[in-house]
Amino acid sequence: MSSRFENFEEKREEKIRKAFKERDWNEIKSTDSWVIFKVISEFVEGFEKLSKIGPCVSVFGSARTPADHPHYKVAEELSAKLVRHGYGVITGGGPGIMEAANKGAASENGRSVGLCIKLPFEAKGNIYIDPDKMIMFDYFFVRKVMFTKYSQGFVVLPGGFGTLDELFEAMTLIQTIKIGRFPIVLVGKEYWSGLMDWIKSTLLEQYNYINAEDLDLFILVDDATEAVKVIDDFYSKYLLTPNY
């Protein structure tokens, strides 16, 4: 077992033990009060830095995607196209797909935003984020608020648990009318088709846990040009164009 993995296991066990530890009232009050203020400070920083960024599209995808992978190239290409069409790009600020998207935006001198999360194995943003548009978060839920509050569309490339979390967060908020019905574009039909088939056959047809119209919350495409066209077509329907 690698030392890195052992360190992760130690951190996990420490959190489990801490959850069962009895605390007196003073400890609870001081610890929880600090958390409250930290959460508020992250919201304040996010609102201040992102309130004037203009129309942006969030690009989600795996941090593990190497730079020579086709998914990386697609993310870079589509982000450059988004900038040329008037949009800024928001990512989670890390490596892989996130780095590719920020790189594509930066290559066209577009707005390149990085909402970074502090993790044991990922502690800083990639080099393609605008310095004044990089924010570090301790809390995933605060970070996800920023993604959904300041994005006018979501492009989702292949990824793991984190990508799925962001995808279903966006779909749930749109489904429940907590945010506008912004376009959600899944790039990579081969990668996403199994999940989409399961949503249709199991969630809808077998258990009726979603409505048929919920399948319209997302669109599957295969390349960067198609992805950007979905975003453009959506906004042309409302006679809206990016304003910078």
Rank of each mutant, 00 (worst) to 15 (best):
I97G: 04
S58E: 12
G159P: 04
D132E: 15
A80C: 08
F141R: 02
E108Q: 15
N109K: 13
N102Y: 14
A106V: 09
C116Y: 02
N126C: 13
A106E: 14
K144F: 15
D138F: 06
E108G: 13
H71K: 05
D68K: 09
F147T: 09
P70M: 06
R143T: 10
A123M: 12
C116W: 01
V74A: 13
G61S: 04
L82V: 07
F154E: 02
P95H: 11
D138E: 15
V156F: 09
G92H: 01
G159H: 07
G125M: 03
H71E: 09
K144Q: 10
A101F: 01
H71M: 02
E122K: 05
R84G: 03
T91H: 05
N126P: 14
E76L: 12
L78A: 07
I129A: 04
F141I: 00
K124Y: 06
G153V: 00
I129P: 04
A123E: 13
I90K: 15
Y139E: 00
V142L: 10
E77L: 08
A80M: 14
D68C: 05
H71S: 09
Y128A: 06
S151T: 07
S151Y: 02
S79M: 05
V83W: 09
G88S: 13
A67S: 13
R64G: 10
G94R: 03
S62I: 15
R84E: 15
L119P: 07
T91Q: 02
F140V: 00
A67G: 11
L119F: 05
A100D: 10
A67V: 05
L82C: 10
R143V: 07
G104I: 08
Y128R: 01
P131E: 13
K81E: 11
M146A: 03
E76A: 09
I90Q: 04
T148A: 13
C116M: 07
G88K: 10
A123L: 12
K73L: 13
K124I: 07
